[in-house]
């Protein structure tokens, strides 16, 4: 009986995710915050620098994964609140958790779909070699879930415009780029920066992707996976709690 209920919830969550994919993936907000933003930041980072493709590809992959996965929740949830389609979920015979899992799925798939592009370009055009498929795949999957859950958590900020959520989220996302080995390699960070970098989930995404593509991994795969799993749990827990608290205020 319990299993039947779980399968039903998963089917409904998938339906919500699938609908979001159909409606929101090509919306200007998703394209700007999920694709254009990370690509332009990446270009501003590599232009004029002596960065090899082997160094650049993992950063581009991690950055697009980070921005794309975390953008879908903050775009779809405020918009659905504004159009009052979110009420359809609340009045349907499903739990709020099912809705949030569906929204997380949409972010997860978006992140994976976008980040696979630079990997393919790296492998097919620049002859990048995947040396550790496990590290790469687990890095992509875990990170996409983790950042989609992060977006979901921020989407609990009450508001009916994506900007209301995006602005505070970017206050967190952009500083993370500086302590996660995106602009400055972790080994070149000051000591306090190196300590902080351990606590940034993006650090561990870059580490795993680098490891997968034959680059150096400072902290080791086990710590990378552990930290990403920890953040995934934390973001999901807080996101669900915040959304439930919001519903109680309705």
């Amino acid at each position: 009986m319990e299993l039947k209920r779980i399968f039903k919830a998963l089917r409904v969550a998938w339906a919500i995710g699938e609908k979001d994919i159909r409606i929101y993936y090509a919306r200007p907000g998703s394209l700007v915050f999920g694709i254009l933003f990370p690509f332009s930041m990446f270009l501003s980072y590599i232009v004029g620098r002596n960065v090899t493709v082997a160094q650049a590809i993992p950063i581009l992959v991690a950055q697009t994964l980070f921005f794309a996965s975390s953008s879908i929740g903050p775009i779809t949830i405020p918009l659905e609140r504004r159009l009052r389609t979110f009420e359809r979920f609340l009045s349907a015979p499903i739990s709020l958790i099912t809705v949030l899992v569906g929204k997380t799925l949409a972010g997860f798939i978006y992140g994976i779909a976008i980040s696979v592009i630079p990997i393919l370009v790296g492998v097919l055009v620049f002859n990048s070699v995947i040396v550790d498929i496990f590290a790469l795949v687990i890095g992509l999957l875990l990170s996409a879930f983790c950042f989609a859950a992060m977006g979901l958590m921020f989407a609990s900020i009450p508001g009916q415009h994506p900007g209301t959520v995006m602005m505070p989220m970017n206050f967190v996302r952009i500083p993370m780029l500086f302590i996660s080995g995106v602009f400055i390699p972790i080994s070149e960070l000051p000591y306090w920066g190196q300590i902080l970098s351990v606590f940034s989930p993006l650090t561990h995404t870059i580490e795993l992707v680098k490891g997968g593509l034959g680059g150096e991994n400072i902290f080791g795969g086990v710590l990378n996976i552990g930290i990403l799993l920890g953040y995934l749990g934390l973001f999901l827990f807080l996101g669900i709690r915040f959304h439930i608290a919001n519903q109680k205020k309705e």
Partner: peptide
């Protein structure tokens, strides 16, 4: 509160999926 980017058919089918 219908999904304007979807067709009438897709709106109904999505509602059906919400109710499993």
């Amino acid at each position: 509160n219908v999904y304007t980017q979807l067709t009438a058919w897709q709106n109904l089918i999505f509602t059906g999926k919400l109710y499993d």
